[in-house]
Computed example of a mutant assay.
Amino acid sequence: MQKVHAPRAASIPYSERLHASHWFVTLPETMREQMLAAAGLLSMQPGETLFRRGDPPCGLYFLLDGALTAGSTDARGKESLLTVIEPTTWFGEISLFDGLPCTHDVVAVGHALLLHMPQAALLRLLDAEPRCWRHFALLMAQKVRVVFRSTEAFSLLSASQRLAARLLWIAEGYGGMSVGLTRIGLTQERLASMLALSRQTTNQILKDLESQGIVQLLCGELRILDTERLRLAGNGHC
Rank of each mutant, 00 (worst) to 15 (best):
K3E: 15
A9W: 11
A10H: 04
A10K: 10
P13C: 00
S15Q: 07
E16A: 03
E16Q: 02
L18C: 00
H19S: 04
H19T: 13
H22K: 14
W23K: 02
F24Q: 01
V25W: 02
T30Q: 10
T30H: 03
M31R: 05
M31E: 06
E33K: 10
M35A: 03
L36H: 01
A37N: 04
A38G: 02
A38M: 01
L42H: 02
S43K: 03
M44S: 00
M44E: 01
L50K: 00
L50A: 06
R52F: 09
R53S: 15
G54Y: 07
G54T: 05
P56K: 13
P56G: 05
P57N: 08
P57E: 14
P57A: 13
G59P: 13
L60D: 04
L60T: 06
L60K: 09
Y61C: 00
F62Q: 05
L68P: 12
T69H: 12
S72A: 15
A75Q: 13
L81Y: 11
V84P: 02
E86S: 10
P87Q: 07
P87Y: 04
T89L: 09
T89W: 09
E93W: 15
S95I: 14
F97Y: 12
D98R: 06
D98T: 12
L100V: 06
C102H: 14
C102G: 03
C102A: 12
C102Y: 11
C102F: 03
D105Y: 05
V106T: 09
V107C: 11
A112I: 04
L113G: 02
P118R: 09
A120L: 12
L123R: 11
R124E: 15
R124Q: 13
L125N: 03
L126C: 04
P130F: 14
R131E: 14
M140D: 12
Q142H: 13
K143I: 01
V144Y: 15
R145M: 10
R145F: 11
R149M: 03
E152R: 13
S155L: 14
S155A: 13
L156Y: 14
L156R: 14
S160M: 01
S160T: 09
R162H: 04
R162T: 10
W169F: 11
W169C: 08
A171S: 11
G175M: 04
L181F: 08
T182L: 08
T182G: 05
T182N: 07
L186F: 09
L186W: 11
Q188C: 08
Q188I: 12
E189N: 10
A192N: 11
S193E: 15
L197I: 06
L197C: 05
T201R: 14
T202Y: 10
I205D: 05
D208M: 06
D208L: 12
L209R: 02
L209D: 02
Q212K: 15
G213R: 04
G213A: 01
V215R: 02
L217K: 11
C219G: 06
G220P: 02
E221P: 01
R223W: 08
R229H: 07
L232V: 07
L232H: 10
L232F: 09
G236S: 09
H237F: 10
C238F: 07
